[in-house]
Amino acid sequence: MQTNLPVTLTELELRSFRRLAGIMVPASAEFHVPGADDAAIFDDIVRSLGRDGLAVRQALAALDELCNGSFCDLNAGQAEAAAMTLLARSEPMITALGRAVLQCYYRDDRVFRALGREARPPFPLGHELEQGDWSLLDAQCGRPRMWRDLDGYGG
């Protein structure tokens, strides 16, 4: 069972989280995308924590524990090493942390456009879907009956 209680992160937790998010998904000039620590994206992440709030808080606490202090006080190299150590753990709180970041990052308009996708919801315009090659079904037509019943045929 899990609890769905909403959580409000403290200022210190928010600073750690933003730094961590920027390491998880960094900005890239090569791919023309912001990082997950971008102000608009991070605001969305925090606003949307919802059911994952408690797990994210636990993950941030585990990160501080790894650092023997505050993650925010580490230099860049130390911070990246600590973050990667945390993220390598297979625990539900790490899955939740990843989900919290990715579900907002991959709906940002800039990220969408960088993927070659229109920045809009699916409805009402929908998408085009080609029919594909139906001639491939010819190989299946005329196969003998495969289903079984009490009459002993098939199978």
Binding site: M24, P26, E30, V33, A83, M84, G98
Partner: peptide, 16 residues
Amino acid sequence: VSSMAAGRLPWGRNHH
């Protein structure tokens, strides 16, 4: 999300 959970998608520099 699913690729991250499956270990296919790394965090950090090689993510994109």
